[in-house]
Amino acid sequence: MAKTKVLERKPLTPMEKTFLPQILSGLKTTFGTMMQKDVTLQYPEERPNIPDNYRGVPTLVKDPNGREKCVSCQLCEFVCPPKAIRMTPGEIDAEADPERAHVEKAPKEFDINMLRCIYCGLCQEVCPEEAIFLQDVFSLSGYSRKEMINNKEKLYELGGTLPDQHGKWDKKKAAEQSGNAH
């Protein structure tokens, strides 16, 4: 059992019973805080510092070459607890984009319903392609329910590019070409 130490309370001195010394010291404290610097952030002009691991609005990111990273594996759609993600997988047109033909798939449509999203970050955690990230956008508003559904363009616009240097699919292609796939 944890040891407890009983603090002895001294009886109040006659002066303390009038409460006047305590009131005076209280006044001193409040005067002290009055002299201190304000902690207010003038919000719309000043923005708060967002830490790196902040979980804001989920977004889709592109790789340094500006190419889509998502391969529409649908893991995020599956894991999302409130079913905020709805996506339609699509094929990459090999003729139009021979560079990325070997990736084979990319999302045709990708909607995240921000009225459902609970910002849990599971989509980011599950994504095998590091394509979806919860970034620093924290204020989100719209006039209608429809406006609150982020479609693919919006998600990429919010997400931007991620400066990672994996080049996973480039490496895979190079390996294939040099004859030692896998």
């Binding site: 409040t30 805080t33 009055m34 201190q36 610097k37 304000d38 902690v39 207010t40 003038q42």
Partner: peptide, 10 residues
């Protein structure tokens, strides 16, 4: 004003 200064606001 005084209230906000005492509470560290503006």
């Amino acid at each position: 004003k005084v209230c906000s200064w005492i509470q560290g606001r503006v």
